[in-house]
Nucleic acid binder design. Structure first.
Lengths: 212, 212
DNA sequence: CCGTTCGGAGTACGAGTGTTCACTGACTCG
DNA sequence: CGAGTCAGTGAACACTCGTACTCCGAACGG
């Protein structure tokens, strides 16, 4: 055991790999992945074009890595917030605040996600879609454990989870477009939208949803 | 009056312009605008690269033209559907069906919109955002004329209109990803989501929305 | 009818692209 | 210590790209 099998070698490799990811992320602020050049990235990262291949096969593969770096660390976070105690109004505010904080902390990452969610690079689209689906499932699971979810079908819970997730994505995207000065207004509207959904949720079973 | 002032000259110009737009749209099925080459488009359209400049300054300008071609003809359509008679359930179904039909009829156009809504080309993003804002206003206006909208503030109507529009965009994007065979399922979920929003709308004023 | 307009063709240029290849030299491990 | 691994180098390949020219010829307007 003891001294980790990887030594200076692996550390340096991870270091330049991270440099490539960061350089790419910076460049992606003003363009989309499908127009990102391999050379462009390596130039910004301070390595030669050939070195790129030691880490990624494509720029598409780099994109997938970026997706996982951004969204991978978020799992469970939103679900945790939803499961915290407090009335729905409080949980709602906390959710929106959580998003605003994360987007404000690492805007480039979320801009990338918003941009590539429907972008031109297939594998990246797929990776994002897979992560968002996981989020929807986690949110649905968290909602299902609430007392107010009695009588809800599995499918409807998933529908609701997807609804929340999609709104989070929209909100992040709107936040990015609005910039720091417009943040307050965006948060205000996002909170109202969520409130409306919450109200609909409370009366969902009353209105006898038709089964088709 | 009679024979339009524009003659064979203008007709041919419009013809190749349209050829450029169609060629670009076809190419954009599998990539995004920022990676679309000027030469690539002209090659597919069957003209020389230089001819491009007679019609568009940039590929960005071409993108803006595509936005207006796609979304410009849709104004009033959704609002008209919302104002038609029938209970909310019927109107809801008609709205979703309208979207599904349009997306099915010209998938490439809507794929383009979804892709470039947050894409890397600024002017195109702006053009799409402007059109979507118009849609939101139109929907808000239509909703405001319904009997159920009594007591709603201007701002809340706009919030609701934006909510509907955003859901339409999400639905189109999901439809495109699902393909023809998954269409029925997507429509089903979209309808449920709209139903939940509608329920929330019906109880909005009861729940005494806090003014912040 | 004849001079003008102008959409489009053709050519050429410099810059940037992805990818391959042989190579170097520092780290790794028996 | 010494052989081997391997992240990163540098040069070269065969492209594509956007743009600036000049030029052609059909449609136009007086």
């Amino acid at each position: 055991m003891s001294h980790t099998p990887g030594g200076i070698r692996q550390t340096q490799k991870l270091r330049t790999r991270q440099a490539l990811l960061e350089a790419a992320l910076a460049l992606l602020e003003h363009q989309s992945l499908s127009s990102l050049g391999l050379r462009e990235v390596t130039r910004a990262a301070g390595v030669t074009p050939t070195a790129f291949y030691r880490h990624f096969e494509d720029t598409a593969a780099l994109g997938v890595a970026l997706v996982e770096e951004t969204l991978g660390s978020l799992h469970g976070l939103i679900a945790a917030v939803l499961m915290e105690t407090g009335d729905s109004e409080e949980r709602l505010d906390r959710s929106v605040a959580l998003i605003a904080r994360h987007v404000g902390a690492q805007p480039a990452h979320f801009r990338f996600i918003a941009r590539e969610q429907h972008g031109g690079v297939g594998p990246v689209r797929a990776a994002i879609a897979a992560q968002l689906r996981r989020f929807a499932e986690e949110v649905a699971c968290a909602l299902g454990q609430e007392p107010g979810a009695a009588g809800w079908s599995e499918e409807d819970l998933l529908m609701l989870g997807g609804l929340y997730v999609d709104h989070m994505v929209i909100t992040t995207s709107t936040l990015l477009e609005a910039g720091p000065e417009g943040e307050a207004e965006v948060v205000r509207v996002a909170r109202r939208r969520l409130r409306l959904v919450t109200i609909g949720r409370a009366h969902w079973l009353d209105e006898a949803p038709a089964q088709d």
